[in-house]
Computed example of a mutant assay.
Amino acid sequence: MKQRIVTGVIGGAVFVLMTVLGGWYYYGLLLLLAITGFGEYARMNGLRWHHPASLIGFAGMFVVLIPWDALGLAQPNAIHTLWLLLFLLLTITVFTKNDMTIDGAALLLLGALYVGYGFHAMFEVRNADSHGLLMSCAAFGAIWASDIGAYFVGRTIGKHKLWPSISPNKTIEGSLGGVVLSMAVAVMFSFAAPDAIHLDKALMIGLVAAVAGQLGDLIQSAYKRVRGIKDTGAILPGHGGVLDRCDSWLVVFPLLVMTGLVPLS
Rank of each mutant, 00 (worst) to 15 (best):
L82E: 07
V16D: 00
F38L: 08
D195E: 15
I143Y: 08
M204W: 15
L243Q: 03
Q75H: 14
D231N: 14
R245I: 01
A196Q: 11
M61S: 00
H239S: 05
F15H: 08
L21S: 06
L90W: 07
A105M: 01
L90F: 10
A70V: 07
Y223A: 03
F191N: 07
I197A: 05
R126H: 10
G260M: 03
S136Q: 11
W163V: 13
C246D: 03
D147H: 14
F191Q: 10
L31R: 02
Y117E: 12
L55E: 03
A193G: 10
I5Y: 10
G141L: 03
T96A: 01
L176W: 03
F15M: 07
G228Y: 09
I148L: 06
F62V: 15
F58E: 09
L181F: 09
L107C: 05
V211A: 00
I172Q: 08
T156P: 05
V153L: 02
G60I: 13
Y41R: 00
A138P: 14
W68C: 01
S265D: 13
L84W: 13
G132Y: 12
G37Y: 12
A138H: 12
Y25W: 15
L33M: 12
A209E: 06
V64Q: 14
L33W: 11
N169R: 15
D99V: 14
W24K: 04
I92C: 06
D69Q: 13
A74K: 14
F95T: 15
I157W: 11
I148K: 07
W249T: 09
L107G: 03
E40F: 07
I157G: 08
L71K: 02
R43M: 04
P67L: 00
L17T: 11
L21V: 10
A150P: 07
A112L: 02
S221G: 03
G37V: 07
T259F: 05
A234M: 12
G116R: 09
N127Y: 12
S248Q: 08
R4A: 00
I102P: 11
V6H: 05
Y223P: 04
G174L: 01
A74I: 15
V9A: 09
W249F: 10
L17F: 15
V14K: 04
A186T: 09
S265I: 09
A70I: 06
M258D: 09
D147N: 13
G154M: 02
L218R: 08
I172C: 03
L110Y: 14
G213C: 05
L133Q: 04
V180Y: 05
D195P: 12
N98Y: 12
V180T: 05
R4G: 00
Q75G: 12
